[in-house]
C-alpha cells in the first residue's frame, strides 16, 4: 500500500469505499438510504468506490472500506485480501459480511449436490464449500450487525470514524431496547417465542414493538446462555426443528448460533 497523507493533518477528505461480496445489496443501499445525512457524508468523505452509486471507481487506497457480503468463491477470498491491503480501516456491514449470511446454510449441506440439482452445467460454477464471514479471511476493524444494518448505526460508525472515536454500538441483548422504549415483553406477557434475550441489540427492538418475537437478525449478543434460554422456546411452542430453524437464518454462521443449532439438531 502506498503512503497517503494523514487526513487529520493534511486537510485531505478521507476516501470511502463500499464493497460487495455474496449478499443482496440491502446493507450498502442503507448508505444511499441515509437521505438526511447523505450530503453531509459526501461533504466529509470522498466516495471513491461505490458501484451502486457511481460508475467511476477511484483506484484507492481508501481510508474507510465498508464491506458487504460473505466469501463464497475462491475469487472473493483473493479479492478481500486486496481490499484489506488497500484500506486503512475495514468495517463489515451486515449479517453476510459479519456471520456468513443466510447463504451459510450451505455449510450444513453438500454443495456439489446442490450444484448438480440447480445448474444445467455445474462445471461452469466455481464456488467454495462454505460461506464465511470477512473476519475468517482478513483482520476486521469493526463489525456492524443486522440483516439489514440499522441506518442510524451506519451513520454512527462513519461519524465515529471521522471523529476518531469508537462507535457507540452496544453489544447487549435486545431486551435492553424493549425495556427502554417501553415495549411490553412478548414472552412474559403473551407467551410468544422471542430471541431477544440472546440477540445483539441495534434494531431498536423493532419486532417486539409490533407484537412479534425477535428472530435474531442481529446475531448473538455478547452474553448468551442457551442452555437456560432454549427451554423457554420449547415452553412457548417451538419443537426441536423450529429451534434449529430459527437459529439457522441470517446469522447461522455466527459461532454461538451455529453451535447451539448443531446441539439442537443432534437431539
Amino acid at each position: 500500500m502506498k503512503a497517503t497523507p494523514d487526513t487529520a493533518t493534511s486537510g485531505r477528505r478521507p476516501e470511502l469505499a463500499v464493497w460487495k461480496f455474496a449478499s443482496c445489496d440491502g446493507c450498502q443501499l442503507t448508505l444511499l438510504d441515509c437521505e438526511d445525512e447523505l450530503l453531509g457524508i459526501a461533504d466529509r468523505l470522498r466516495i471513491s468506490y461505490f458501484l451502486e452509486a457511481s460508475s467511476a471507481p477511484g483506484p484507492g487506497p481508501y481510508d474507510l472500506s465498508l464491506v458487504e457480503g460473505s466469501i463464497t468463491t475462491p475469487q472473493d477470498a483473493e479479492r478481500i485480501r486486496h481490499i484489506r491491503a488497500a484500506s486503512r480501516r475495514l468495517v463489515t456491514i451486515g449479517a453476510c459480511a459479519t456471520a456468513g449470511g443466510i447463504q451459510a446454510l450451505r455449510n450444513y449441506a453438500d454443495v456439489a449436490e446442490y450444484q448438480a440439482v440447480v445448474y444445467a452445467r455445474p462445471d461452469y460454477v466455481e464456488t467454495l464449500a462454505t460461506s464465511t464471514p470477512i473476519s475468517a479471511h482478513v483482520p476486521v476493524d469493526f463489525e456492524l450487525r443486522g440483516c439489514p444494518i440499522d441506518r442510524g448505526q451506519l451513520v454512527e460508525v462513519i461519524t465515529a470514524h471521522l471523529a476518531g472515536r469508537n462507535p457507540d454500538v452496544p453489544a447487549h441483548s435486545v431486551c435492553f431496547e424493549c425495556k427502554r422504549r417501553g415495549t411490553v415483553c412478548v414472552t412474559v406477557a403473551h407467551g410468544t417465542p422471542c430471541l431477544g434475550p440472546v440477540t445483539h441489540a441495534g434494531c431498536g427492538a423493532l419486532c417486539p414493538a409490533y407484537d412479534r418475537g425477535c428472530y435474531g437478525c442481529f446475531g448473538p449478543s455478547n452474553s448468551v446462555n442457551f442452555p437456560s434460554f432454549v427451554p423457554l422456546l420449547r415452553r412457548d411452542g417451538m419443537a426441536t426443528l423450529d429451534v434449529v430453524r430459527v437459529l439457522r437464518t441470517f446469522n447461522t454462521g455466527s459461532p454461538e448460533f451455529d453451535a447451539e443449532s448443531r446441539r439442537e439438531a443432534e437431539r
Binding site: H172, S173, C175, F176, K179, C185, P197, V198, N225, S228
Partner: peptide, 8 residues
C-alpha cells in the same frame, strides 16, 4: 446457570 444476563 439460569440467568440470561439479558438485563430485564
Amino acid at each position: 446457570a439460569r440467568c440470561l444476563t439479558c438485563g430485564n
